[in-house]
Every structure is written in structure tokens, then in C-alpha cells.
């Protein structure tokens, strides 16, 4: 999984935008096309990263303010034209250490996922309909933490506005068929580097459910921007989850076979 922050928000507006007036665009078709252009440019700018590895600390906080931490290592592989693969290996808390999640995100077909349960050494398939479900109790859903395939959404450009002193595009994203748990997301992306900074996620009744914000982007390999922190707040339950990224290593030489189902059995 490329983390949500990096991916969800990766979508950015692209070239062609200057041709449009800065005011709100009325025409739906035009807005859809401009939205898609933004995301396409964002994706294009992030294409070619090949693979990256990062370690992650996820802190869950409930309404009463109690918190709990999960740590994991995440490996992501880019497969041009096909999609992306991700392997998440849990390192904490102690009782879930060794649990691993392998997911394939495809541009067109339904995604595939397996979980590895180390206590019984079992690799178990997970139904791909799980996208709406909470990822290990966090406010991030499986859809949020999976690599984002732009083909699986439609878009609508809304406006340009300042966000934290940056000129940003604001656009909506709607899932096509895939269940994400959200009817739509409103995304803020800066015009200079096409990095997502904020996403408002709306529930099926079109009520604001969660807000995702990202912070402190760093540049890797002189091309790929990744945030060091993401924060997801649930407005309806008062719960929140923070994700910190401790290190990113790009182009480590990971290959397709490192994401085969069989690797789950040979991690140790």
C-alpha cells in the first residue's frame, strides 16, 4: 500500500489547466475532464518510482482519548500498465507481530488480497469487497491505504483556492464501481507539485464523515513527494488516527516475485 497520504493525495492537476478560467466551472463535462487531467498529471509525476519501502507508526485514538499504536513495514511495487502491489508486515503490537497483508491493486480488474496469520502459518484470501472496512481498527479504510488507481474513479473540478498559503486545486472524486465507503471525496492539491494536502470524505448520505490531512512532504530521488505524516479524523465518532512515516527508501530493487503469495510463507 502506498499510504493514503501519499496516494490518495497524489492526485494532482496537470498541464492543460491554464486554459481554463480560474472561476468555478459550470459545465459538468468540462469539470470532469479538468478533474481527470489534474489526477492524471499527478499520477504521471509519480510514475516511475519503481518501488519503495517505508516504516510506519499508526496511532489510534478513541473518543475518550485512549490510544493504541501499531507499527508496520510497507513495501510497494509499481507495475506499469497493471497497477501496484503492496506488502504490509506488522511489527507491533507484540501479539500481531508477523501478521502480513498482501494486496494487489489493479487498474481495471477487482483487487486481490491475502492475509498471513503466523500463529497457524495460514495464508488466507480476503474478499475484495472489504475496501470499506476499517484497517486494523484505524480510521483508515482498506481503500484509503491501498494504492489508488485513478481509473477506478470519476472526477469533478470545483475551484482553485489557497490552502496553507499554497495555491491549490479543489476537486471531487467519486468511486465508479468499487465500494469505498465514501460517496465522494473533496481533495485539495497544490498547483506547484500536485501533492494532496487534504481530503474530505463524505458518507453514503452525503454527510461529512472524515477529514484526511497530510503534512511535511519530502522529496525523494528528486522527483517523488511523500508526506511524513497523515491525520484522519472521524467527525461522526470523534475517533482519529495518525500515521507517521519514519523513512522512505526508493528503488530498492524489489521485484514482482517479492510480492508473490508464496513470499508470505518464507518471510521466516
Amino acid at each position: 500500500m502506498k499510504l493514503p497520504c501519499s496516494t490518495l493525495l497524489l492526485v494532482v492537476l496537470g498541464g492543460g489547466l491554464n486554459a481554463f478560467p480560474l472561476s468555478t466551472i459550470e459545465d459538468d463535462d468540462l469539470a470532469a475532464r479538468k478533474g481527470l487531467e489534474i489526477v492524471t498529471e499527478s499520477k504521471l509525476r509519480d510514475t516511475g518510482y519503481k518501488d519503495f519501502v517505508t516504516t510506519v507508526t499508526m496511532t489510534l485514538k478513541n473518543k475518550q482519548g485512549h490510544s493504541s499504536t501499531r507499527k508496520m513495514t510497507v513495501r510497494t511495487l509499481e507495475e506499469l500498465d497493471k497497477g501496484e502491489k503492496a506488502l504490509i508486515l506488522f511489527t507491533s503490537p507484540a501479539d500481531s507481530r508477523g501478521t502480513a497483508l498482501l494486496s494487489y491493486s489493479f487498474k481495471k480488474e477487482a483487487d486481490k488480497q491475502w492475509i498471513y496469520l503466523p500463529s497457524i502459518k495460514r495464508v488466507k484470501r480476503i474478499a475484495s469487497g472489504n475496501k470499506t472496512g476499517s484497517f486494523v481498527g484505524s480510521e483508515f479504510s482498506y481503500a484509503d491505504i491501498s494504492p489508488q488507481q485513478l481509473e477506478k474513479y470519476t472526477y469533478k473540478f470545483l475551484k482553485e483556492e489557497k490552502y496553507q498559503n499554497m495555491d491549490c486545486f479543489v476537486f471531487e472524486r467519486f468511486p465508479k464501481e468499487m465500494k469505498t465507503g465514501y460517496s465522494k471525496q473533496v481533495i485539495w492539491m497544490d498547483k506547484e507539485h500536485y501533492r494532496p494536502w487534504k481530503a474530505e470524505c463524505y458518507d453514503r448520505k452525503d454527510k461529512l464523515l472524515k477529514t484526511l490531512t497530510t503534512n511535511n512532504y519530502d522529496l525523494y530521488k528528486e522527483r517523488f513527494w511523500r508526506p511524513t505524516m497523515c491525520y484522519m479524523e472521524n467527525h461522526q465518532t470523534g475517533k482519529s488516527t495518525t500515521i507517521e512515516f519514519h523513512s522512505y527508501k526508493f528503488q530498492t530493487g524489489l521485484q514482482e516475485k517479492d510480492f508473490d503469495r508464496s513470499v508470505l510463507k518464507r518471510l521466516k
Binding site: 474478499a127 472496512g133 476499517s134 465518532t237
Partner: peptide, 14 residues
């Protein structure tokens, strides 16, 4: 078969 209701009854539970 095994079927899962994610976000069962509009809660966070599966």
C-alpha cells in the same frame, strides 16, 4: 462460504 459485512449496522464493526 464466508461473507463479511464491513461497517456492520453503520458501526465500525465487521
Amino acid at each position: 462460504f464466508e461473507n463479511t459485512r464491513y461497517g456492520w449496522l453503520e458501526t465500525d464493526m465487521d
